[in-house]
Design a protein around this nucleic acid. Structure first.
Length: 267
DNA sequence: ATGGTAGGAAGCCTA
């Protein structure tokens, strides 16, 4: 059975609820993983999702910042969250779905952006990002790939040369520095995770999921980065059906700076 | 080389 999972950094789920509703009506994934909901759990628009057939809602929010949520047509066998770096940040949520492979773990991450200065001594936010990545490597390495698993989210790193508009111009820009891209690939290879998007778009082709708000004409300048990702554990190899990056959503009215990324699995 | 925009909370932080 096809299972379509979308990941989208929505940058305020309450402000952009009409955009989310439009996306769900037009693209109808089975599961939607959101990041940057910027919404305390008590204010999450659960009823709106239920009206659209997404009856199962798991949320991990906080006031003002961060926040992740998973809404689904399929029920959850379990819901978990982890407080990475023990800062009380809402940056991770996990659910278990029943699938043809048995229980399937789905992890939704919002990795710290890391501030502007790529120096962990001068910049606490960059140090936090690196600490988060180190903890993620240990934690994922300790077992997630033992079970059929999918990792999605705004990982805030563009790992490959063609994941940014200019590799050379971004080598010292947070999100594409060697220390980050090497940590990213070390985590991915450590768990033998499949980079699902790159199974469908060759590494030689540009592929972006985010365009800055600070551009006069984002589409003409096209200075994007691939910050949003879908990883699958080796159990899902041979069951990957497709990927859709909805670039047009960046042009919707009052858009998020990230666009939805949908991946479809035969499970 | 610089500064550009956006959202939430509340008189600045994060991105």
């Amino acid at each position: 059975m096809p299972l379509a999972i979308t990941t989208w950094n929505i940058n305020s789920v309450r402000l952009r609820l009409p955009l989310v509703e439009r996306y769900l009506e037009e693209h109808a994934p089975d599961v939607l993983c959101l990041q940057e909901t910027k919404c305390p759990d008590g204010s999450f628009p659960t009823a709106a999702f239920r009206r659209l057939g997404y009856e199962h809602v798991a949320i991990h929010g906080q006031k003002g910042y961060h926040g992740v949520a998973i809404v689904s047509k399929r029920p959850f066998a379990s819901v978990d969250k982890r407080d990475f770096c023990e800062k009380g940040d809402a940056r991770h949520l996990a659910v278990t779905l029943d699938s043809a492979l048995g229980p399937l773990e789905l992890h939704d991450f919002y990795i710290p952006a890391g501030g502007d200065e790529p120096d962990p001594v001068a910049n606490d936010k960059f140090a936090h990002k690196l600490a988060f990545l180190a903890e993620l490597k240990t934690w994922l390495g300790s077992g997630a790939t033992v079970r059929p698993s999918i990792v999605v989210g705004d990982l805030n790193i563009a790992p490959l040369t063609q994941d940014v508009w200019s590799h050379k111009a971004l080598l010292k820009v947070v999100s594409h520095t060697p220390i980050e891209t090497e940590a990213f690939e070390s985590i991915r290879n450590g768990g033998a995770w499949i980079d699902v998007m790159r199974r469908f778009v060759p590494e030689t082709e540009k592929l972006y999921t985010w365009w800055s708000y600070r551009a006069a004409d984002w589409s003409a300048a096209d200075k994007g980065r691939r910050l949003d990702h879908v990883w699958a554990s080796p159990h899902l190899d041979g069951r990957l059906l497709g990927v859709e990056v909805l670039r047009e959503a960046r042009g919707w009215e009052r858009p998020s700076d990230h666009v939805p990324v949908k991946a479809v699995f035969d499970v």
